[in-house]
Amino acid sequence: MPETLTQRTEHQSFGAPVEVREFPHGRAEIVKLGDVEIGRLILEPGWRWSNDVKPIAGTDLCQAPHMQYHVSGTVHIVMADGTEFDAGPGDVTSLPEGHDAWVVGDEPAVVVDWYGASNYARK
């Protein structure tokens, strides 16, 4: 039976991630609690999924679904169906597969992704 968060107490820190995946204009810092991977995405001004992560993923749009909390900065998100919006500090987003996104403005965007980080920016 796989471990779950309820089976034992754990403490991890993004100050010492178990994995860091770097890509142009950003990185994904990964921590693990049991069998759950949580990512902190640090996206610098100029980051755009279709430019910086698409070559790693090899898909036209991001195919990783996400559940995210937006800590700082602003990310503009465009879904395959044409829906688009900005997500900023304090926002929580649920993104199904099939989207592009980019940083808006001059402030880095920091996003905590508790669903979808496992395969983000991984070949």
Rank of each mutant, 00 (worst) to 15 (best):
G15D: 14
D91R: 00
E44M: 14
Y115H: 12
R8H: 11
E37H: 14
E19A: 14
S94G: 13
E107Q: 13
G90W: 02
M67D: 12
A87K: 11
F14E: 12
V18T: 08
G26Q: 08
P89M: 07
E10R: 12
T59A: 09
F14L: 13
F23D: 07
R27V: 00
D106K: 10
I30D: 03
V104C: 02
G46P: 07
S94E: 07
Q12M: 05
S118L: 11
P2Q: 07
N119Y: 01
I56A: 01
L61D: 06
Y120M: 08
P55Q: 09
E107V: 14
E29K: 03
T74K: 02
A109V: 07
V53L: 06
M79H: 07
V110F: 05
L43W: 07
G90F: 02
G98F: 05
D106S: 06
K123T: 03
N119K: 12
T9A: 05
H66A: 09
G116D: 13
G39Y: 01
I30R: 11
V75A: 03
D60M: 11
P2W: 01
E107D: 10
H76W: 11
N119F: 04
A117Q: 11
V71Q: 14
L33D: 01
I30M: 15
M67P: 03
G98R: 07
T93H: 04
V103G: 02
T6Y: 14
D81Q: 02
V104L: 00
E10A: 12
E97Q: 09
A101C: 05
D86R: 10
A87W: 04
G58I: 06
M79K: 15
T4Q: 10
A16Q: 09
M67H: 13
D86A: 04
W114L: 14
M1C: 06
Q68R: 04
D86M: 06
V92A: 12
Q12G: 01
E37M: 13
E29C: 07
E44V: 02
S94W: 11
E10S: 13
F85Y: 13
G58Q: 10
W114H: 12
G105A: 08
K54N: 06
L61W: 12
K32W: 04
F23L: 05
Y69P: 00
S13V: 05
D86F: 08
K32M: 11
I30T: 08
E22N: 13
N51I: 13
D91H: 10
R122T: 09
A64C: 15
E10P: 01
R21E: 06
E97F: 02
F14H: 11
P2A: 09
